[in-house]
């Protein structure tokens, strides 16, 4: 595909939560992210698709600060976060999940969930000794929130299970629930239904939609086309590290360049 075909994303949105400008990342000679500028509007579920190796996860890693970018900027709610550490970006409201489920060895589901809210008073050794009752109060509230959220996601019965004993789909659900407890401004989900059975995938779709209706903004990478086409609007298409186009599910579905990118693979 020639370079003119890369139309780029829409950059004229009203209420931008997340914005990248000219992000670049190369691994040796391989340019994984090539001048990526995108905007995510508050309150949307924005999808991100693209063939294998298009650079979607790399872009997430750049946005969330896990990779250092070669050039470009990231802003959250208009605030520059390009030089911040991953945990500082998370505190600014930018929270991501990972493509492969993260296993918390030796933790129950309840514990794994309780890592989410933050910063907690009980995370300071000093408070543990000098304001124990505040810690108790906050911990109680968090336990209660965990219980409600798991019940809402219909996995309340798993609360005592070892978090490593869950099915892939249940793990994804716990990750989604936990990420939500951080009270993020935007949630970045990397393939939330990869390897999840269709029933559970449908549940996950329903929960994401519910959270979105309550105001949660999402940016979601997903290979499962019916899933993402049904859930997200707009959808950003990435190919060979560049933004190919952005549009509604229908526009994306009928775009020749998108079809070519998927059929042509990495070819010219």
């Amino acid at each position: 595909m020639n370079d003119d075909a890369y139309e780029g994303a829409r950059l004229d949105k009203d209420d931008v939560v997340l914005k990248t400008t000219g992000l670049e990342k190369a691994f040796g000679g391989l340019v994984a992210t090539d001048d990526v500028s995108i905007e995510v509007d508050r309150g949307t579920i924005t999808g991100m698709i693209g063939p294998n190796g298009a650079g979607k996860s790399t872009l997430f890693n750049l946005i969330s600060g896990f990779y250092e970018n070669d050039a470009g900027h990231v802003t959250v709610n208009g605030e520059e976060v390009t030089d911040l550490e991953p945990h500082e970006r998370a505190r600014k409201g930018l929270v991501r999940t990972f493509q492969t489920p993260r296993r918390l060895e030796g933790m129950s589901v309840r514990e794994a969930m309780l890592v989410g809210p933050g910063p907690q008073k009980g995370e300071s050794v000093f408070s543990l000794f000098f304001s124990g009752s505040d810690v108790t109060e906050e911990e109680r509230a968090n336990i209660e929130q965990t219980r409600e959220l798991l019940e809402r996601f219909e996995i309340g019965h798993l609360i005592d299970q070892p978090s490593t004993d869950l099915s892939g789909g249940q793990m994804k659900l716990v990750e989604l629930a936990r990420a939500f407890t951080t009270d993020p401004d935007i949630l970045l989900l990397d393939e939330p239904v990869a390897g999840v059975n269709p029933t559970l995938a449908n549940d996950i779709k329903r929960f994401i939609r519910e959270l979105n209706e309550e105001g949660q903004t999402f940016l979601i990478i997903e290979h499962d086309m019916p899933f993402i086409m049904d859930l997200a609007d707009p959808i950003i298409v990435l190919d060979q590290g560049k933004v190919l186009m952005e549009g509604s599910p229908d526009e994306v579905r009928s775009d020749d360049r998108v079809i070519e990118a998927y059929l042509g693979g990495a070819g010219p």
């Binding site: 550490e85 991953p86 945990h87 998370a90 060895e105 933790m107 309780l114 009980g122």
Partner: peptide, 23 residues
């Protein structure tokens, strides 16, 4: 405590702890 919990998270997956905003 929440402090010990964060350490346990770091032990099994430090990136996850960072992604959740833990220093």
């Amino acid at each position: 405590s929440p402090w010990g919990r964060v350490l346990r998270t770091i032990r099994s997956d430090e990136d996850l702890a960072k992604a959740l905003g833990k220093d």
